[in-house]
């Protein structure tokens, strides 16, 4: 055996062990709930469902197009949704962000009451009591917020609370989309 091969034999498993260590190390502290949505880069799924405020009127994905927007999945049983609601009302009012709601696995009257009491940041909320649209969107649990462009292509997804900390990165993407549309 030549010395170079010998040296290689001695060193390469060490390198492999080191690489493995590095690989495992970079996984420490990662949030396992942060799974990248497989919907990113794809168009919104087709749906046809009533809205929360006028249950006799159906809307479809086409009603969400034309401008970049956020789609916020929420429910009255979800504490984090309660926590982020004021923030949603804020950006809808002050920054004129177009937000659509998906009222997920909820009761109609409770949800209507919630919007009356806490304010309604949504252009409309799609009523999804059985989670049908939820499955097509790949919703894991409320709250989740999707950023879509004017053509309805999903650009990004936030799992968890939208607040002062999580909004800025999403906001810069939203503003870029807004610039591209106007």
């Amino acid at each position: 055996m030549t010395t170079t091969i010998k040296r290689l034999l001695i060193v390469s498993p060490m390198l492999m062990a080191f690489a493995l260590g590095l690989f495992l190390y970079q996984g420490i502290g990662k949030d396992p709930n942060n799974i990248e949505s497989s919907l990113i880069g794809q168009s919104l799924p087709a749906f046809n469902a009533p809205t929360l405020m006028s249950p006799n009127k159906n809307v479809t994905q086409v009603d969400m197009l034309g401008q970049p927007a956020l789609i916020n999945v929420w429910a009255t049983w979800c504490p984090t949704c309660r926590a982020e609601h004021e923030f949603l009302v804020g950006i809808a009012k002050q920054e004129k962000v177009r937000i659509f709601g998906v009222n997920y696995h909820d009761q109609l009257t409770a949800a209507q009451q919630w919007l009356k009491e806490l304010g309604n940041p949504y252009v409309f909320s799609v009523s999804d009591p059985k989670g049908v649209l939820g499955i097509d969107l790949g919703v894991v649990g409320a709250p989740e917020t999707y950023l879509i462009d004017a053509q309805g292509v999903v650009i990004d997804k936030l799992t968890g609370e939208l607040n002062e900390r999580t909004w800025p990165p999403l906001r810069s993407k939203y503003l870029k989309l807004l610039e591209a549309t106007n």
Binding site: H105, K130, G134, V139, V140
Partner: peptide, 20 residues
């Protein structure tokens, strides 16, 4: 189950597992 990640759909009781 996408929510409770160490369980399969059969074992989980979360909303999403029931839906799926």
């Amino acid at each position: 189950c996408p929510k409770c990640q160490n369980q399969n759909l059969a074992d989980s009781d979360s909303i999403i597992a029931k839906d799926l």
